[in-house]
Amino acid sequence: MLKDSPSTPPCIHFFEVVMMITKRIVLHFPHRVADQPIVYKLARDYDLEFNILKAYITPEEGGLLVLELRGENKNYNQGIQYLAGVGIETQPLSQDVIRNETRCSHCGVCVPLCPAGAFVVEPSTREVHFHDTKCIACGLCVKFCPIRAMEVSF
């Protein structure tokens, strides 16, 4: 987006394009970093807004964290590099929450039940689209989908 609002700092060129991005990612923590303030550093050092969607972190055992991160593209990439540097594997959330396309019958029972509104019916075909960018990885659909077409594999 073009950032030219009055709050733009004077040191930035008026027409400089600052790309803001929002991404949902899964962080796999090795046990040796499970006790470090990783999210705090992402916010402080890389100016990334975070929203914790899911967390299973046990000291000495490692764990998993699902985050929504928002910030400047440049800062986001540097933040990801920082994570890789300390040994945390990251991957897009969409790789971990998937719909088994051969199994899904497009019935649509998931549509009103998904708290994130990630399932939307296409009115002309009645097919159900899964918007993985909206998914918050709550895992509810995995249990209520009658034919078990949704899979979460962190």
Binding site: S105, H106, C107, G108, P112, T125, R126, P146
Partner: peptide, 13 residues
């Protein structure tokens, strides 16, 4: 009230 279907219309087609 939002509605959901248990029967698949695309499969019926």
């Amino acid at each position: 009230v939002p509605t959901g279907s248990l029967s698949s219309y695309p499969k019926a087609v």
